[in-house]
Write a protein that binds this DNA or RNA. Structure first.
Length: 261
DNA sequence: TTATTCGGAAATTAAAAACA
DNA sequence: GTTTTTAATTTCCGAATAAT
């Protein structure tokens, strides 16, 4: 940009036009206006105590974090969601939390639940903000992992929540609520993917672990119904799939089937 | 085609915070 | 004390719109 003049005349200021700063200026001359410099400039810079937009944003983000929500709930504080819509809550599912939960799942739980592919899950982390299916899967997966014995609050928790024995359970509850909320915001029944079925299974397992048996069976039955509607109980369903996807679906089918019995 | 308007990017400035 | 960070304000580019 060309060097700005120290002060634009009143008319140029009003017209948002470049002023040459002399009196009369070129614009006023051309427009046959009287060129004045009467406006009193405002004082620039922060007012009073340092204005703190960034600090407010930081505080808001901090309050959005899972640890802060857990702390609030443990203290019996207000837990009205600051984001009442059905969009993902910004800052709730941190990359640190996801990383630790994925690692825990594949290190400890995968042998019993070989329904996910690690590469695929890690890929989905990259675009979960744009893809509600991926977001719900990761949220419910984290909720499930947080309920497991041996799993602790994620690193970077500023509230020392490890000292509260129930913190992981509260975290799991909050994550389940988040997954269910975001799910309401999109038509997950339109395309019954592996993500959708796995999300159902994790929601089932979380509710079961949280002693909410009716809801748990609801999610399992829903998964079972989706499996039947998509024909996953018939062998030819797997013909048109590539082998990795087919084997994951087969395992998921048998897992849901066996759990229901 | 020319003139005018105006959204908003970039520059400028100054107060507060951080640092030595 | 000086430097850095932050935010309020100003200038004016350039796209959209209106007038001729």
């Amino acid at each position: 940009m060309m060097q700005a003049v120290k002060r634009a005349c009143d008319a140029c200021h009003r017209r948002k036009a470049k002023c040459d700063g002399v009196n009369p200026c070129r614009n006023c001359g051309q427009a046959r206006l009287s060129c004045t410099y009467n406006a009193i400039p405002q004082k620039k810079g922060p007012k009073g105590t340092r204005a703190n937009v960034i600090s407010e944003l930081r505080e808001t983000q901090r309050q959005m974090s899972l640890s802060a929500k857990v702390q609030n709930r443990i203290n019996g504080g207000p837990c009205a969601p600051p984001n009442p819509g059905l969009a993902p809550t910004p800052g709730l599912l941190t990359s640190e939390l996801i990383k630790e939960c994925i690692a825990f799942f594949f290190d400890n739980l995968y042998p019993q639940l070989p329904i996910l592919d690690r590469n695929s899950v890690e890929q989905q982390v990259l675009y979960m903000e744009q893809n509600p299916g991926a977001y719900c899967l990761l949220t419910s997966l984290c909720a499930f992992v947080m309920l497991q014995p041996g799993m602790n609050m994620p690193a970077g928790d500023p509230y020392n929540l490890d000292l509260f024995p129930g913190a992981t359970i509260v975290s799991s509850q909050l994550l389940v609520e988040e997954a269910v909320k975001v799910r309401k915001g999109y038509e997950y029944l339109d395309s019954v993917s592996l993500n959708v079925l796995a999300t159902n299974f994790f929601l089932f397992a979380c509710h079961y672990g949280l002693e909410s048996h009716d809801r748990a069976w609801h999610y399992l039955r829903e998964a079972s119904t989706m499996i039947h509607l998509t024909g996953m109980h018939q062998e030819d369903h797997y013909m048109k799939l590539e082998s990795v996807e087919a084997s994951r679906r087969r395992r998921l089918f048998w897992l849901v089937y066996a759990t229901e019995r």
